[in-house]
Amino acid sequence: MDFKKYKTFQVVADTLNLTRAADQLGYSQPTITLQLQSLESELGVTLFNRVGKKTFLTPAGKLVKGYIDQTFSLLDEMEQELRKLDSPHGLLTVAAPEFYCTQYLSLIIHSYITQNPQVKLQLFSCDSNEAMKKVASNEADLAIIAGPCDSPIMDSLPLGKEDLVLVTTQELYLAHDTATLLAQYPFITYKSGSNIQRLVNECLEEYGFVLDHCIECVSDETIKRTVLHHTGIALLGSALVEEELRKGTLAEIHRFPGIIETSMVILKNRLEEKNIHSFAEIVKRIWTEM
Rank of each mutant, 00 (worst) to 15 (best):
H230P: 00
T288Q: 13
L228D: 01
I286P: 07
L245V: 10
I286Y: 10
S263C: 12
I260P: 06
R225Y: 06
L240V: 03
F256G: 01
K284D: 10
H277P: 00
V283N: 15
L240Q: 11
E252D: 00
E261T: 14
T262G: 05
L267K: 14
M264T: 11
H230Y: 12
T226A: 01
W287Y: 15
G237R: 04
I223N: 01
N269Y: 08
F256T: 09
I215P: 01
S263P: 04
T231D: 03
T249F: 03
V283M: 07
E273F: 08
C217Q: 09
C214K: 15
R246E: 06
I215W: 07
H229T: 15
K224N: 05
I233S: 13
V265L: 05
E244D: 09
R246V: 14
R225G: 09
E252C: 04
L236S: 04
G232V: 13
K274D: 03
E252T: 08
F256K: 10
K247E: 06
F256Q: 11
E216D: 02
I282T: 15
E244F: 11
L250D: 00
G248I: 04
L245K: 10
R225C: 09
T288V: 14
T231A: 13
D220N: 03
H213P: 00
I282F: 12
L235F: 12
A280F: 09
W287D: 07
H213V: 05
T222F: 06
I286K: 03
K224H: 13
T262F: 15
I215L: 04
N275A: 04
N275W: 03
A251M: 02
A251N: 08
I259D: 07
K224Y: 05
I266V: 15
I215T: 11
E281K: 10
T262I: 04
A280C: 07
L250N: 04
I215V: 10
R225M: 08
L228T: 11
I253P: 02
E221F: 15
K268R: 12
P257N: 05
L271C: 12
L245Y: 13
